[in-house]
Structure formats: structure tokens, C-alpha cells
Design a protein around this nucleic acid. Structure first.
Lengths: 188, 188, 188, 188
DNA sequence: TATGAATGAGAGTTCATTCAT
DNA sequence: CATGAATGAACTCTCATTCAT
């Protein structure tokens, strides 16, 4: 990613996170980036293209972080706890990015379908960890796929908490949320 | 709610559910309702006003259904199971309505803040059921509020499932999802 | 055609005639018409739609004029002469309109295909007059369809003349052009 | 014309012929030519400049072909027939090139005025052949200039034919069209 | 000679809202 | 109560041209 593209990328993240996809305009992104509007279109095909690029990069970083932080662990349960921890930490750290995802993942527009496709990569990653624990007989092994969605849903709940308790520190709920998940997946 | 207002209300539900808030136009709502565009503004202040009205009515119905279906039950755990069941059934039945909520609840626009305020009523309702079970010592009593959000998140996961497995019947995952919740809240 | 639509129609004719299709802007048409730009889109689907509407109306008027001016004549040759005369008079009178047609009829865009479809109506009209004269044995009867195109081409040549001799009066060439056509079609 | 310029020239011909002037972009021409966009501006002043260059070269070739194919003929009428034949053959062979000319010759932009100036050279050439025949008393000698335009118009009609009967072979109408012209100019 | 990243004016289109009837 | 023509700000996107390298 060259310099200008990166500048645009960052300006767009900021815009989408603060205002959501529809309320962010190309004019505004260009101004924040300090480039002309045409430059946006030199580096990206369209507004949707910028969006997709951001989601893609963001998810990639998240996956890398999860993999990196779990690779030194042996116990599948410990791994799962770490996945939860990393995941929830990232949600709190990049809460605006997650809001963008959560606002755009429900519809039927091209952009939204693509977003879900990218998310699928993440779901597969989580499934791997759950399956590993199930294979070791450490958690309930039925309906692993459903558990993946539940896992995702609880991650979303952290965002809801932050939205409703804007004054509070969402870190406070991480431990309890991890426990909820661990119990939910049927840890033995 | 008089006749014309009701017609508009229903046309708007249909539009928002099928296309989301932004892609639904006042023109389209008016056409579906079979009234002139100006008539929309006679009965509602604005597009956001229609949206708020729908969310309000929808949540009200949901709350009534939950209360109605649990009032004959005695055991707090049975009540909670019923709350889950009713809730997930409604999600599947009115999935488009929930998609609309889920797409609009993350932002900072007036409409979105109002939506969260309305959702709070629902959160309080759920909290009551959880508190009751906790008071009876039937579930883990710590951080009840956090459990409410987790509960909500899992509801959302059912929508995700439907989005990703468009061909499958989401009813298949209800039982497993209820179990996830019951374990997650620390049923004893 | 209601009042506002007519105003837009006339502003658009003026714009397209003076500047051609591509150089005419919706802003300019709106300003000339004295309405807001949005009003253009209330009455027409798109810029192309305005264009098509104009061509359609223009050709209709032309056909009516030709039919009207020939209906009292009996002799097919006299009719043909009158067709030529009316046609060439119209070309000179509405030369800007014909330039618009001539600039837009060669391409492969939707608008241009539609234009040719509309032109076909005119070709059929001319063919009728030629066929009548051929049936009466008054002109060469071979390849009537080709003669129709030749007829059209010569009409175009009048526009070329006007373009190149902007100072001169194109009426001067009408008689000679009619003779060219009459000889060309093989009048006996 | 050096190598790079020639490559650009050919890419531009292809573009203008296939898509017309306005729909052809400098990006596309550069890509077809296999050079950078800046290179276009090294060899040509502007897009209009490329256009003019192409028209100029194209007309030159056409004139050369006409002169070449008639120079061995003695009889002015035979020459005229040959001019028609060569002309119509070229129209059919390079129909896309002629469409480009025909779409651009009616307006008032600089490029369009220049195009007509270049066309004038061709008109003078045709006039020479007609004058020669008139001087020899072989055709009607009145209004030779008007006949030139008529001649041009009929050439255009061949393009119209091709546009409307895309499936048919335009060669089929050449003979009849030549006859139309020969009769039209008043061959004796 | 050649490049290609950057530009920015300007295009067509959308749509929530208004208001005279 | 209801209408629908009219509005205009705001939007995304295009593309010929420039210029530092």
C-alpha cells in the first residue's frame, strides 16, 4: 500500500467509524486525507471499494493478532480464553471499526454481501479453535457452527454495552463476558 | 392510530424491512401505501419519525408477547427458557424487522439514539427475568446487566445465521442457542 | 404535455440544438427553463429521456406536416415533389433540430439506438410515397428501400450546405436539390 | 510520424471508431496503445488534436485512393463512376471511421469546425470531377457545388443503411446507389 | 522521451421536504 | 385531510489535463 493510498485508507476509516457508511462522503474523506477527490478514484474504484478494502484489512489484522497471541498456547481451553480476550480487547480498542461492520452486515447490497463473505473467514478461524477444544473433549461438541455465531453475537454485545454506557469503561465487562462464553460453549 | 396512518405504517414496515432505512424512499412508501407523498407528512413529521414509530410499535408488540407467554409460568428458569424461545421465534418470524434494528442501532444520529432508548425498555424487561432467577439462586447472580447484553447479542447471532445460511431453516438452531444462553447465564 | 413539461421541453430543444447532446447540461436546461434541476427529473426520467422525447415529438410534427401538405394532391410525382419541398423547408427552418439528429444517429448508445428506431417511422413514410409512384410506373421501381436512404442522405446534404455556407440562404439550393432527387429516383 | 506517435494514432482510430469521440477516453487510448497517459500529451496537444490528426490522415488516404484509381481513366463519366465506386467501397470498408466523421461534423466546437475545414478539401476534389464532366457537356452543369453536397449526402446514406441493416451486406446497395447519383447529377 | 500520480471542475442523479391548492 | 408538483442541496463518479521525476 503506497503512501497516498494509506492516507486515504486512514481518512476513510475515520469517516466510516465516526459517521457510518452512508453519512460519510467522498468529499469529506478527500478533505480529511488532504487530497483531491479525484485522487480517491485514482486509488479506489468506488466508495464501496474503499469500504471493502478497509474491512478486508481490518479483519486481516484481527486474524493475525488472534493467531499470534494463541500460537504459544497448548491447552485448547486456554486458547479459547485467549481468543475471547484478544477479540474483546480489539472490539474495545477499535470500537468504531466494529460499529461500522455491525451497521453494514445486515443488508443485501453488494457491499454488504461482500462484507459477510469477508466475515466468513473470521468465522472459520473461530470454528477451528472451537473444534479443537471439542475434539479434545473439553467442550460440548454439538453444533459447533452455531456456537461460532453465538460467539460473534456476544462480541457484538460488548459494542452495545459501550454504546449504552458511554461513560463507563467497557473493560469492566470483559471478564464476565468471557465467562459467559466459556460457560455457553459448555466447558467441562 | 387512524386508518391512513396505519396504512402508511404498514407500508413503511415493509419498505424498511426489505430495503433498510437508507434505501427506502418516501416515494416508495407512499406508493406502497397508495397515498400521496404529502400525506406521509401529514401523519408523520419526517422519515425518521416514521422509523421511530415503527420501532416503538414493534418493540411494544414484542414485549407484550413475552409478558403474555410467561405470565402463567412459576419457575424463573422456565420463564427464562420461555423468554428465549419467544424472543428467538420472533426474531425468525420478523427477521427483516430485526435486521432493520440491527443496522440502525450503532450510529450517532438522532434516529439511532432514539432507537437505543427504545431498546432500553426491552433490556429492562429481560433484566427483570434474570434478576428474578438470580434472586431465587437459580443462576449466577453476578453482573446481571452484562448478561442482558450477552442475551441480546445471542439474539443477533440468530439473524447472522439466517443471513449466512439463507437456504436453511433458522428454527434448527433455536434449541442449541437456548442451551447456550442457559449455560452462559450460569444456570445451576 | 402540461405547462412545466413544455417549458422544459423547449429549453432542452434550445440547448441540444445549440450545443449538441453532450455539451448540453441539465443545469443549463433547468436554468433556461427557469425551474430547479430536480424539476427536470420530476417530469423526465433522465437526460436521455428528454432527448428521446424531443426527437419523438419533432419527428411526429414533421410527419404530420408532410401528410397534411400532400393529402390534397393526386399525382404521385407531385406528391413526391411536395414531400421533398416540405422536408427541405423543414430542414432549413429547424436546422438546429436536424443537426442534433444528425450528430446522434451514428452511435451505439441506448439513446442513439432509440433515435434510429424513431427515424424508421419516417423512413416508412417516405417509402410509401416512393412505392406509390413506382406502382404507377412513374419512377424506377427497383430498390425502393435504397432510394429511401438516398433521399434521407440528400436531406442531410442540405444541412451540410448550411453549415459550410453559413452566410448564404439555404433556400437557394432547394430547387436544385429537389431536381437531383427527382432525377435520382428515376422519374420518367 | 515516429513509431510511438503511430502507435497512439492507431489506438485512437480504433477507439474513436468503436466508441465515438466522447465515449473514447484518453486512458483507454493510452492503454490500447500500450503507453502511459502522459505520453499522449507528449505527442499530441490534446484529445481534440488527436482527433484532428486522425481525420486529416484519413481524408488524405481517401483522396489519394480516389486520385490513384481514376488517373488512368479518360472519360469524365467513367471517372465519376469510379469516384462513386471508390468512395462507397471505402465507406463500407472503414464504416466506423465514417460514423465518427458523421457524428462530429455538425457542431460548433473547435474540433468540429476543423473537421469541416478538412472535409472542404474533399468537397473540392469531388467538385473537380463534376466540373470536368460538366465542361465536357456530359452532365447537367448547373449548381455544381450543390451537387457536391448531394454527392456527400448519398455517401452518408450508405452508412445509414449499414446502421439499420446491420446483418446485411452494404455492398448490395452500391450499384443502385451509384445509379442514383449518376441519374441525380443529370448524366446525359 | 516517457511516465503515472494527482488534480478539480463539472457532470447526471437522488430524495426528504415544502406548500399552494 | 389529502395532494403532488416543485425544490435544491448533496451525492457519487468521470476524465482531460498537468507536472515532477
Amino acid at each position: 500500500m503506497n503512501k497516498t493510498k494509506k492516507i486515504i485508507f486512514e481518512a476513510a476509516i475515520k469517516a466510516f467509524s465516526q459517521k457510518g457508511y452512508h453519512k460519510s462522503t467522498m468529499d469529506e474523506i478527500a478533505e480529511t486525507a488532504g487530497v483531491a477527490k479525484g485522487t480517491l478514484y485514482y486509488h479506489f474504484k468506488s466508495k464501496e471499494d474503499i469500504f471493502k478494502f478497509i474491512i478486508d484489512e481490518g479483519l486481516k489484522m484481527m486474524e493475525e493478532e488472534i493467531i499470534d497471541k494463541t500460537k504459544h498456547l497448548e491447552n485448547p481451553i486456554e486458547k479459547l480464553r485467549m481468543v475471547c480476550k484478544v477479540q474483546l480487547d480489539l472490539v474495545i480498542k477499535y470500537i468504531e471499526f466494529f460499529k461500522t461492520i455491525l451497521s453494514q452486515m445486515w443488508g443485501d447490497e453488494e457491499r454488504q454481501n461482500q462484507l459477510r463473505e469477508i466475515l466468513n473467514r473470521y468465522f472459520n478461524l473461530i470454528e477451528g479453535y472451537l473444534q479443537e477444544a471439542a475434539d479434545a473433549g473439553l467442550i460440548d461438541g454439538t453444533d459447533i457452527k452455531v456456537k461460532v455465531y453465538n460467539f460473534f453475537g456476544i462480541m457484538a454485545s460488548t459494542v452495545v454495552y459501550s454504546l449504552i454506557h458511554k461513560d463507563k469503561n467497557a473493560n469492566d465487562i470483559i471478564e464476565e463476558t468471557i465467562e459467559f462464553i466459556m460457560r455457553g460453549i459448555g466447558k467441562r
